[in-house]
Design a protein around this nucleic acid. Structure first.
Lengths: 194, 194, 194, 194
DNA sequence: CATGAATGAGAGTTCATTCAT
DNA sequence: GATGAATGAACTCTCATTCAT
């Protein structure tokens, strides 16, 4: 695939991403993407064979960017507690975002396709986030900023709460206040008062 | 609709429930249910007009049973901590259930249909569980069994962790050990050691 | 079929008539009639085998009543011109009737079923009307009330104009003024000034 | 849609036209047209979304051709009476055509779809025909070829007779002789003897 | 007589996927 | 590479008609 094709490929993925944000995963047809991209039916098939393939690529793109964002926060010289709070704030913004995120599409994708539970992109993201957070907590404990009995379990706990908030935001709705309370509760568990 | 029809209606719902457990929500067509029930195309339409309608009824059935289960636990004379632990164990069993549960179908349903976030069955269940757990915690605090700063926020926290575990079990997988650790972490936060 | 059955039969026909007036012929299903009559599906089939059968009966009923109406006008002692004008006025009222008549249903019926053109109820009505009008005109000519070269052709002409008005009222619409003008034109052709 | 598609579109319309001539409007399904055209189910939907859409297009095509026919007659240098007689003869041929015309389908279409009475293609054709005939009569009166008291009402009268003959031909049947008599009657009313 | 649940044929419609150009 | 017309499988939904009760 030449230079030009790579650009078109990227264009398709970015356009498809918007479609997935808007309509989720299962409701999106190849035609939807064709229409949004304003290319021909056959043209799309030159690059991707199915919506599943497209979505997986969109997710991979997403994943790269997300990792970057996390790294950015870490790279700045800030205390462990600061980084944690920043991360949680970021998550809050994300899960309350009104005009669409990929949450629904991602869950739908993992529901409807036969994705191995052991080795998948979501799992990698989750595990990676847990690991980073674990280290962060360890560092915070070391520096005396915060208190924690078992950093791994605590890190996982935080991640599960965030997952719970994310899915709840899409099904039963959560108010910003509830999110704030829950995040404060987590920090408080670590001995951090805002 | 006579007595007999009611039985058939129930039969369809129970059969459909199995189909939803197996295939989720979006992948299920009226034909799937017709085939599973071994009735005619038109026959199904006598009772239900769409998979959405069927699924909502399945959910309602489910909801009634779940409430009962909870009440049962409460009705026995046991300490607050006991009841809490029982509830969490129940949830653990549910979310680790191998041969299918309605989790995926339920989330898919709430994703794909236009369900109001403010007033829906999932929300009612969530709020009701929070309220009961809050009272439970209050009772436990009163009796000195457990410690808790803010029973409402804590109750919600527990529910969000459970939601997080539930969705994670379906997407990235969770081991029984992880669930145990997380539940222990929660109980520990309440001052309960198993 | 006993007395009771005859009554039910008549009830069905009268109810069906209303349905046909409202929805035409082709859009009416056995279910529509069942619903309107508030009887059971099987019950209707005890009396009639199809909407075609029902509509034919409705038409027969209608036909009897229409003939009566015509006879009524004739029985009164009035001049030929009077009777003619009365008849035309009646037709005007009928074809301008807002809330439904059987015109559309009747035409639809004759279009969609394989009705012999030579011997059918519509034909009988038409021919009968022509004959009566012919006699009427002859009587008028004799009495010097009106002038006419060929009473049969004239009678048919009047009937065709009426048919034309009837169908036009249902497709392109006709105003009362247009009807008045056309009827006046007919009468004027017979030497009658209103 | 390219050149080729336009040809196919036209092919579909012409084929559908035959189907409508044979079976009327309400009895024609998308499948009937698909079969007649020997194309795929989906293929037809690329061009038209419903039988209603197709029929409207057929009618539009028809309308263009009919207008042409009329113009042709007018363009030749002939007396008003000649043109009138030519037009009536054309109408006679049309309404007696054995192997199907679109009359039934057209009426059925206007019965079953919600067509506005004020502004529809049939109405336009009718009004246009009335207007042309009115002018024709006026010209004939001017040149002394024929006599007429009120050209507009007379023109409408002729059109209504034609409509009456058209509908009657499809329901109760009319013989060529009857048509001839009626047309002669009309001409005679204008002072034209054949 | 009367009921109404049940059947199954058939219409409408959408979409992934292919393929000649 | 790119196009978009074409295909056909699959799904939704409706209704005439039957039949056990």
């Amino acid at each position: 695939m030449g230079e030009k094709s790579l650009q078109k490929r990227k264009y398709i993925l970015e356009t498809a991403r918007k479609v997935f944000m808007e309509k989720g995963y299962k409701n999106v047809t190849m035609k939807d993407i064709v229409d949004a991209c304003e290319i021909s039916r056959g043209g799309l098939y030159l690059y991707f064979g199915s919506t599943a393939e497209i979505f997986m690529e969109v997710l991979r793109m997403e994943s790269l960017e997300t990792d970057d964002v996390f790294s950015d926060n870490i790279s700045k010289d800030a205390t462990a507690a600061d980084i944690l709070m920043l991360f949680l704030k970021e998550q809050k913004k994300e899960l309350l975002r009104k005009n669409g995120n990929l949450t629904v599409a991602t869950y739908e994708f993992f529901f409807s396709e036969e994705i191995p539970k052991k080795e998948n992109i979501l799992r990698r993201q989750f595990d990676s986030a847990v690991k980073i957070m674990e280290k962060l907590i360890d560092a915070g404990v070391q520096s005396g900023e915060l208190y924690c009995g078992n950093s791994r379990v605590t890190a996982r706990n935080i991640m599960f709460v965030l997952e719970g908030l994310k899915i709840s935001a899409q099904t039963i709705g959560v108010t910003p206040e509830t999110v704030d309370e829950e995040l404060a509760y987590i920090l408080q568990g670590l001995g951090i008062e805002e």
